[in-house]
Amino acid sequence: MTLEELEKIRKKAKNSYIIGLLLSSVLGILIALLTNGFFMAFFIFIIGSIITAVIAGKPTKTFTKEYKNMFVLKSLQATFNELIYEPDKGLNKEIISNTGMMYMGDRYTSNDFVSGKYKDINVVQADVHIEEEHETTDSNGHTTTYWVTIFKGRWMIFDFNKYFKANIQVSQKGFGNSKISNWGKTLKYKKVMMEDQEFNNAFRTYAQDEHDAFYILTPSLMEKIKKVTNNISGKLLFCFIDNKLHIGLQNGKDSFEHSIFRKINEQQSIEEISKDIKIITNFIDELNLDNNLFKGSI
């Protein structure tokens, strides 16, 4: 598919949305004026919007698929070896829940699964959205259900360059809600105070074993974590478990996406995707995860 063809699909999707919503609004207003019935007008608008979403949904889906195929896949291939990219699939829920370090809420969705090797380090990442169901009841006894986001962002898993036995969690203050912040207390992990006061001020550290926390969190790694945290938008969670490093980046964003309401600019798209990819590779580069000095020991 050429860029022009992709742009045609984008315009078709965009126009379908605009025309559909415009017609729904006009029809709603007309009915409101003619019948003086606000409820009916609102009902017509909602029905029109649903029909619009169905009609525009197909070209939107085609556009997203082709955009990712044209731009995202190529950029990922240029960065990772042994790449698997599945835009519609995500991380298996159990991978995150089995860490025991994340409150999983009531609804879980995930997409943009990426798996590959960078600097010979195994990397897995996906967009993840975790929500919790809430209910409110009004004075008439009507119950309304709504969803509160617990986590929205990216979940990344890297090979870690040291062997360790105990699980350790480092969460940036402000990451997630109280259910996540109090994770260590509920599992009776020890709260560990590192010797770096600046680090303690910015992060909560919980560990099964204090020695392993000090073994993994060297002064150098703590400095690097602080630096990485300062240079990224969003809040971070680091889980050291089963010789892997899980990183949750809560930034409320969907990575590798392009809005149908914005014209495709090839150069800008490549730059945006590169930024999304750099978020992954930066952790390996900045935290020196490719340093295998401690992994070949007896």
Partner: peptide, 21 residues
């Protein structure tokens, strides 16, 4: 063995830092 000594020294540093803390 060189890799082992590096890892052992890392453990010693961890033990030292924990003790000093």
């Amino acid at each position: 063995l060189q890799q082992s000594i590096a890892d052992v020294e890392e453990h010693l540093q961890a033990a030292r830092r924990l003790y000093n803390s």
